[in-house]
Simulated scan of single mutants.
Amino acid sequence: MKPMFEKILPRPDCSWRFWLYETDEVEFEWHHHPEYEIALILNSKGHRYVGDSVEAYDGADMALIGPDLPHSWCSQPVHSGGSVQTYVAQLPAPWLHSMMSQAPELEGLRALMQESERGILFSRSVTQKAARIFAALATASPLERFIGLLQILTLQAGDKNARTLASAGYTFTAQRDSYCERIDRVVGYIYENYCQPLRADELADLANMSTNHFHRFFKQRTEQTFTELVNQLRIGKACSLLINSDQPISAISDLCGFNNLSNFNRRFRYLKNMTPSQFRARLRQTKL
């Protein structure tokens, strides 16, 4: 089966992408992307697929996947209550390589990243320690998340019982197809016009798809809806304006493309856990 290309879109306030999925099960989605990925699966039982490696897992499972290494997990449905928790950290390779080349403190990560080309499975003890850090990242600030990421990478680099997954002879050559070009074209258009009104049918035309097909395509390729991406970009711009200007909140709402102030406040609270006025007041207090 040919792995699907996934487009990774970090939030505007982060250089890398962190996500927590809570689901009844993990469905098989054979895919690849040019980013490094740390995946931690909790409360789950099933199979892990990395390159040509297929192994059963039960309980906490954490792996580091190198760029463009096809991978997926597939679990059984949870019947005992609760949900499967999947923590994902996706790190752009150029960003990580640049940091390692400029900061000698990160030199110890180089061997880890090289080994991740075959996928690395970590010991139960390191996985449990990393799980506690991942849990804290769910409500952390961007800076706190970055510090937590370094802590997790440090744990992984020091794991003497870690092992590689794909065989030494396994190779996969990532090839771009028309779908990669379409998602790049659509995402580029969104980034250039997110403060303007955007309609799904217009983006579907840009991708040469029906509107229904476009919604499914965008969600499958980016793991979020186009509305979620637009709102993230707009709120990111709003935060910048709240920090760097004294413009009224109603004016910032208009500049960022929201159709009314109540919608802006609702979206801002959903993504930032506070209102725009609370965000600005907190910043002013820290400057005193």
Rank of each mutant, 00 (worst) to 15 (best):
Y170Q: 04
Q151N: 09
E181Q: 09
P197A: 09
S141T: 15
Y189E: 10
G148A: 07
T173V: 05
G148C: 05
R182N: 04
V186N: 09
Y179E: 11
A136V: 10
A136C: 15
R145L: 02
A166M: 05
L155T: 06
A157Q: 07
A204W: 07
S141I: 15
L137V: 06
Q151F: 01
A136D: 15
A200R: 10
A166W: 01
C195A: 04
Q196G: 02
A204T: 08
S178P: 00
L165T: 01
R185S: 08
V187M: 13
K160Q: 13
D184N: 12
Y191C: 14
L203A: 14
G188C: 11
A162T: 06
Y194M: 11
N193E: 05
P197C: 12
L198N: 10
Q151V: 01
R145T: 07
A200W: 03
Q175K: 15
T164M: 08
R185M: 06
D184M: 04
A168H: 08
S167N: 01
A166I: 02
Y189P: 00
D184W: 02
Q196E: 07
Y191G: 03
A157K: 08
R176F: 07
A200C: 08
F146A: 15
Y189I: 02
L203G: 09
G169I: 00
I190H: 01
E144R: 14
S167E: 03
D177G: 14
D177E: 01
L143D: 14
L150A: 10
S167L: 00
Y170N: 03
T171H: 11
S178V: 03
A140I: 05
Y179H: 05
L153S: 09
Y170M: 03
R199P: 01
I147M: 03
Y170G: 05
I183L: 10
R182P: 00
T173E: 10
P142V: 09
F172T: 00
G158M: 14
F146C: 02
F146P: 00
I147G: 02
S178A: 12
T164K: 05
C180I: 02
I190V: 14
K160R: 15
L165I: 01
G158E: 14
R176M: 08
Q151G: 04
E192G: 03
L137I: 13
L203Q: 11
E144M: 12
R199V: 09
A138R: 08
T154M: 08
Y194P: 04
T164Q: 08
I147P: 00
L143K: 14
